[in-house]
């Protein structure tokens, strides 16, 4: 029997818009995954702690505040520290309002993929299923 895929849908920082995060959470649920929703206004430290305690395979971050270049690398660093790993065994995804030109730096900082407005939930779920870093079987 394949094990359950667990996902943390996280809202880092100060923006209060979580419609997108909830839509993604639901899409993951409908794909048979267990989704932990962080709630609004979380710090990178809090999100990393949640990811470790909940033993998730995926951290999906939704950010619309414009602070992605500051907050997302911090989440990755906190995850590395909390997990004591030099390369993460969790997939780190980001979505929201993130300009094209900021994406290379985010990827260099350890974000695995960035999804912009208009991406279908199906595409995100497919990407997630095929890029997990831990075995599922």
């Amino acid at each position: 029997m394949a094990r359950k895929i667990r996902v943390l849908v996280g809202k880092p920082g100060l923006d209060g818009h979580d419609r997108g995060a909830k839509v993604i959470a639901r899409a993951y649920r409908d794909a048979g995954m267990e989704v932990i929703y962080s709630g609004l206004h979380r710090t990178p430290e809090e999100l990393a702690r949640m990811a470790v305690d909940e033993d998730v395979d995926v951290v999906a971050l939704s950010i619309l505040s414009g602070a992605h270049s500051t907050l997302l690398p911090k989440v990755v660093q906190c995850l590395l520290r909390e997990k004591g790993q030099s390369s993460l065994d969790v997939l780190v995804l980001a979505g929201g309002i993130i300009p094209e030109e900021d994406i290379p730096a985010l990827k260099a900082a350890g974000v695995d993929e960035v999804f912009g407005p208009g991406t279908s939930t199906q595409e995100i779920v497919e990407y997630t299923k095929t890029h997990l870093k831990r075995e599922v079987a």
Partner: peptide, 20 residues
């Protein structure tokens, strides 16, 4: 969910203190 086998675990939303 009895249909997809997935779940949304939302109790953490209320955890506002002692988070770290």
């Amino acid at each position: 969910s009895p249909f997809s086998g997935g779940a949304i675990l939302g109790d953490r939303v209320r955890l506002r203190t002692h988070t770290t």
